[in-house]
Design a protein around this nucleic acid. Structure first.
Lengths: 163, 163
DNA sequence: CTATCTGAGTTTGACTCTGATACCCAGCAT
DNA sequence: ATGCTGGGTATCAGAGTCAAACTCAGATAG
């Protein structure tokens, strides 16, 4: 670790390329909401309070990057509307978000406990992110887990607040 | 996953709190360089080409957040200078960065292969990030691994380019 | 003794991005 | 016909970013 005498080429760095898409303000928070189950413009806008212009731009970037997919849906007796769903590429980002979240909770624990819990659907055990070289370990995907409100979760006033 | 009828309180969300510190442009790239072994202001400035003002601000934020630690060092016949070293809290961020990096490489593989490889020091096997509920799996820390240049790494011209 | 170099920043001014407000449009419901 | 709702754009002040210039202290050269 001491005094490396070579540098890596940052143009080809995978972290830099990931941040081209994910590095803007609000982007990861939009994804967090998507993982919590939101898909509609107004739901995102209410949950994030981030300005509809920014939200619109972020949804566009994420859609163009293939992380979200724009789809039409139609509720009974309603016209068609748009929703944004995670693609496989988007769902595959969950471990990165969970790693960030668990780091945050390890070092600055929220006073009322975690806002969300992540459980293995089968074993009902909590899910964690680990760094390992063991090729035999069970690897869970989004479909194997369940996200539930934790002790620190609070119902948010669902009253409309359009900006 | 469909149509959740409650929202979580975003003020207490651990991801939002993590992004307060890590969400600014260049911050995660500064950390990437720190994990590659850099510690000095000018080395960061050369590696990142991000403007010395921004670098200065980011190092300050990361230091205040307890992710980097500012220390004096002195080379023979030189005056004391400053360096920035990862703390335990900073080193513990590595899995999150690796998760992001591996996601990026899975979905947009760099043409020449990965820029860096991460190996288990003992087993010499590649290290990956997994999501699991298995409590018995071996968990590696920063001290158990080694970061090496991968096939896509390129030596960067170490010529001075101060902005 | 003066000049120059280097690491580690700070200051400055142009440019870009963000956030809040306002506005638009289509289709129900009244 | 009026308003409400979902899904957006347009606009503009202020905050953040970028590049270049400037500072400062200690070492070194002439």
């Amino acid at each position: 670790m001491d005094h490396p005498r070579f540098l890596y080429d940052l143009e080809h760095c995978s972290i830099r390329r990931a941040l081209d898409v994910l590095g803007e303000k609000w982007t990861l928070l939009v994804l967090r909401e998507a993982f919590y189950g939101l898909s509609r413009f107004d739901d995102f806008a209410r949950a994030l309070a981030c300005g509809r212009g920014v939200l619109s731009a972020r949804l566009k970037t994420l859609t163009e990057a293939g992380i979200l997919e724009r789809r039409e849906y139609r509720e009974p007796d309603q016209r068609a509307r748009a929703e944004y769903r995670l693609t496989d590429k988007g769902r595959d980002l969950f471990p990165a978000l969970l790693a960030l979240s668990q780091w945050s909770e390890r070092w600055t624990p929220p006073p009322d406990g975690p806002v969300a819990r992540v459980l293995d659907r089968k074993s009902r055990q909590p899910v964690t992110i680990v760094m390992t070289s063991d090729r035999g370990v069970e690897r869970l995907g989004m479909r194997d887990i369940e996200i539930l409100p934790g002790p620190g979760a609070r119902r948010v006033d669902p009253a409309k607040r359009r900006q």
